[in-house]
Amino acid sequence: MPTHNHTHEAVPDNGGGELDPRDAAALLDQTTRRAERQLDLHPPVLMLVAALVVLIAYGAIWLSVRNQHPYTGPTLGALGVLYATLAAFGVLVAVVTRRAISGVSGRSSQRRRGEAIAFAVAWTSVYVFQGALHHAGASHAIAYGIYPAAAPLIIVGSAAAAYEAAKENWEWSGFACAARAASRIWLHG
């Protein structure tokens, strides 16, 4: 226990007076909700931002390839928008995660390290496949246009969907599946 100088503050033995069970229930409810909100790694607002990221990033890609004849792939600007929004989202996730796990240690922090490694592998595989496509003779429009635009959502989205499903977090799993499906539809469209 820390040896602060305030250890001799007078604290009533009952720690705040007689507690009516109704007040106890209300306090318990309020405290639990507050703690869960503070420790939540996936607050609802993050899902909203993720949806906006998909909309903006893939909207930019779609606009850049619309009516292209012959197809040359997304423009550099559109790819820039895609990766900038993904990077911004990554920073937001890092900030939310850092705030939620600040001061928390134990089994779940070890599990989070494992998850981070798994996602790093998933991201790396995106670029390994890109190299394979290049060596297999895929066109520039495919290997450096459509693939880097679609693959992050398909590969990393699949990993995220599986991970959230394993945790029975169906909202996020559903969102990852929807993003992946949108990306596949766009890819074939």
Binding site: G15, G16, L27, L28, T31, A35, V104, G106, R107, S108
Partner: peptide, 19 residues
């Protein structure tokens, strides 16, 4: 007790095995 109830409820919100 209000203070201890808040402490225990907050600690219980952590996954088991976490500090």
């Amino acid at each position: 007790v209000p203070a201890r109830l808040r402490i225990v409820a907050t600690l219980a919100a952590l996954p088991e095995g976490d500090a």
